[in-house]
């Protein structure tokens, strides 16, 4: 072992993924496909929100959905029932998706058939925030029962999101949820975040969300 040499690497663990994500973002821009990375904790209403979103926009755009889950295809079946193309990505126990896995999903969806691709990330507020998927925009759903203090507990997630949907606003009277405090905490972590209160169950706020999305998708398709 006397010829052991030390090689300086000085490379961030996330660097190769970050580069790959930027590359994917460029490819998507070129193919005029808008990719939304949707994140949240389990049970926040991602799939219900997605169903509403698809109903609002499916006549306007060709939509494709990638459902990332550790296992099972329950969500993909629900989404497929709306009539849009849905595929299931199994992460095989991993707590997040990275840019390479996202690229494989996009390939399976086929960019030539899709204007608006949605990646439903693994339900988790920690890991998905650290791995750039290459998405055009990031969105997250925070639901009322989770509490208005979540932006303080998961600052990274809130700081990387372009839009935060506050879901289940119909149950606010039953929870100690302070909407103004919640908005304040989100903006403290991310002054540029767009905040839209919604109720996926009743459809409240979905129009504003769909309008925001349309603007982004149109910009990407130009």
């Amino acid at each position: 072992m006397d010829n052991v040499r030390v090689i300086e690497v000085k490379r961030s663990i996330f660097e190769s993924n970050d580069k790959d994500a930027d590359k994917l973002r460029g490819e998507l821009k070129e193919s005029k496909t808008f990719l939304l990375n949707l994140m949240s904790s389990p049970g926040s209403g991602k799939t219900t929100t997605l169903t509403r979103t698809i109903e609002a926009l499916k006549d306007k755009y060709r939509i494709g959905v990638m459902e990332a889950d550790i296992d099972s295809d329950v969500d993909a079946k629900t989404i497929a029932a709306t009539g849009v193309k849905a595929i299931q990505l199994h992460t095989g126990g991993m707590c997040h998706l990275d840019a390479d896995m996202t690229r494989q999903g996009i390939k399976e969806l086929g960019v030539e058939d899709v204007d608006f691709a949605i990646l439903e990330n693994v339900g988790n507020l920690v890991c998905p925030a650290e791995f750039d998927t290459g998405s055009t925009k990031n969105a997250m759903i925070l639901s009322v029962p989770e509490g208005h203090d979540k932006p303080l507990k998961y600052p990274l997630m809130f700081s990387i999101c372009d839009v935060v949907l506050i879901n289940k606003i119909d149950v606010i009277p039953y929870f100690d949820f302070d909407m103004e405090k919640c908005k304040e905490y989100i903006l403290m972590r991310n002054p540029k975040a767009k905040i839209i209160p919604i109720c996926a169950k009743t459809g409240e706020g979905i129009n504003e969300w769909a309008d925001w999305l349309s603007e982004q998708i149109d910009a990407q398709m130009k």
Binding site: V4, I7, V9, I13
Partner: peptide, 11 residues
């Protein structure tokens, strides 16, 4: 919040 590979020793 760094997470870097600094160096390796190898032959």
């Amino acid at each position: 919040n760094e997470f870097l590979i600094k160096e390796i020793a190898a032959t």
